[in-house]
């Protein structure tokens, strides 16, 4: 049983429904500091709703979500700024948004500026170091519209990292990213987790990716179907039930 202080996210008996059919029912789980969690589930299984609950874009209709031990609305501004969020595949509007990489990464600092302050030297330094970490400092003056899918994804990560987050949440991070960049991308995420102890939570419908990358797997299809270290989860037959297909190749390949 982990210490209370190690728990970074806890959900207790959370249910959500938009129409008559529930999207999520009675979800309870905890995520500890430093975990690398893959949230897996079929399309329409409630993954995105779950992630929106975790980042406070939705509030639970029933049950309780706590981040850093508090409900989302009680978080201070500085606590909120340490939640790095990378939304699902950069939408069309953002791809051709007329701004440079540096401008976008710097914009991650806007929430912590107060009401009248403009960017200062420490903001620029933070943006620079985030770009360096994400390996995109040489792209700093390029327009977003000229980048590849993999480069764009790194820009979004760099923006999320500009406040030195303790928690990074990513929604389908590698949709529309080619295979080579995808591998480099997960290598980078793993480094953040192992070297900096950053808690990583990512959502994916891709069993292959989750099985290869995450330490902990959380399967959601309306209810919480499984939750545990990835080896244990993959050894069981829950995924077969959820997806209705054989997964032995994945488990054996690793």
């Amino acid at each position: 049983m982990p210490k209370t202080s190690d728990i970074i996210i806890s959900m207790r008996d959370v249910s959500m429904q938009y129409t008559d059919t529930p999207v999520l029912e009675h979800l309870s789980f905890r995520i500890n500091q430093g975990e690398y969690v893959g949230i897996l589930g079929p399309n329409g299984g409630g993954k995105t709703t779950l992630l929106k609950l975790l980042v406070g874009m939705l509030h639970p209709q029933q049950g309780e979500v706590k981040i850093f031990g508090k409900p989302f609305r009680d978080l201070t501004a500085s606590e909120r700024s340490t939640i790095g969020f990378v939304p699902q595949r950069i939408s069309e509007g953002r791809i051709d948004f007329p701004a440079t990489v540096a401008e976008v990464v710097l914009s991650g600092r806007a929430p912590s500026l107060g009401w009248t302050r403009r960017y200062r030297h420490d903001d620029l330094a933070a943006a620079h170091s985030a770009m360096e970490q994400a390996g995109i400092e040489q792209l700093h003056d390029r327009l977003l519209g000229t980048l590849s899918g993999g480069q764009l994804q790194r820009v979004m990560i760099a923006r999320a990292m500009v406040n030195n987050p303790t928690l990074l949440l990513l929604d389908e991070p590698t949709v529309g990213v080619d295979a080579a960049s995808q591998e480099a991308f997960y290598g980078f995420i793993k480094e953040l987790n192992q070297d900096q102890g950053m808690t990583i939570i990512f959502v994916s419908h891709d069993i292959d990716v989750v099985a290869h990358e995450a330490q902990t797997i959380l399967c959601v299809n309306r209810t919480l179907i499984c939750h545990g270290p990835s080896r244990e989860v993959l050894a069981g037959d829950v995924l077969e039930q959820m997806y209705g297909k054989k997964l032995r190749s994945i488990v054996h390949g690793h």
Binding site: V55, M57, P87, S107, R109
Partner: peptide, 23 residues
Amino acid sequence: ILALYPKLFAVAFDEEVAQVNGL
């Protein structure tokens, strides 16, 4: 506009993330 420029930019670029980070 000058005072709010960084925030207006952040919201114009990405409402979702701006909201998550408390704007």
